[in-house]
Design a binder for these strands. Structure first.
Lengths: 80, 80, 80, 80
DNA sequence: GTGGGTTTGTGGCACC
DNA sequence: GGTGCCACAAACCCAC
């Protein structure tokens, strides 16, 4: 990190701005999600229930993956 | 949350899937951000400090100053 | 936070030290846990497998709790 | 990880339970710490700054200085 | 303003 | 040694 005002400064600025740009897009998506929840609420759904459903669906997936992974490492631990 | 099993079921499914879709995209952006940090690291930048820079740029100036002043007061109180 | 060197300073110091004390104890427990894993490894167990087992046992519990919670909020959403 | 189902099964169970026991105690301490912060908050202290104080006290002086210097360099490079 | 929950950041650990 | 991963801790945000 020599060249405080020189080339490195340009690279640094570039990285910072790329991250900031991506974070903006991410924040926009978060806002979209919030809007969907809001719309759902307007249709009479309970947001807390919705969130829970989505969380459980995600968990089931990762749970299944974990189980498979456990089987896998058991097998390797037993040198099968 | 009326009409369980009826028309509302369709709507519910639709909301759930929209949220899941958006969350996938959000996760993809998070991965992109991670990659940028990784690239910056490869260029010799300190990721932790980089994160701090981005945090400071986002933070309001007056809040930032306020926090620092409070920290200063506490440290003097503790004779650090 | 007036009284930088006075009464408030004493209270501040007291809180800080209480937290530090508790964190020390917590760190000691973390070290104990690490030691148990180490001992298990010495007995021929695969640490990664062990961790996975413990994680799954914890997950199963919290999964069950989540399911119950979901049922509960469904019921409340349906005003049962 | 040999002897699945035999004597090793007992040992395995023992290790798992010891870890789980220690993790419970650790969780209890975490709750205690949270409570201290809560009490401090009730006395008018800023929790965020309090945490920072504790972090700084734990951190090595030279590391702390190093981080600050790096931050300073980056900020000058970005003309912040 | 307080608590809960979600998300982000940091540190430790294992593997390469 | 250094890199990626995972778990814990902290910050943030919303709803009440």
């Amino acid at each position: 990190m020599a060249e405080v005002g020189g080339v490195a400064g340009e690279r640094l600025r570039s990285f910072v701005e790329r991250v900031e740009r991506l974070e903006e897009e991410k924040a926009a998506l978060a806002a979209d999600i919030k809007e969907v929840y809001s719309e759902a609420k307007g249709s009479g759904f309970d947001i807390k229930v919705l969130r829970q459903i989505i969380r459980l669906r995600k968990m089931d997936q990762s749970d299944r993956r974990e189980q498979e992974e456990l089987l896998d490492i058991y097998m390797r631990a037993l040198e099968m």
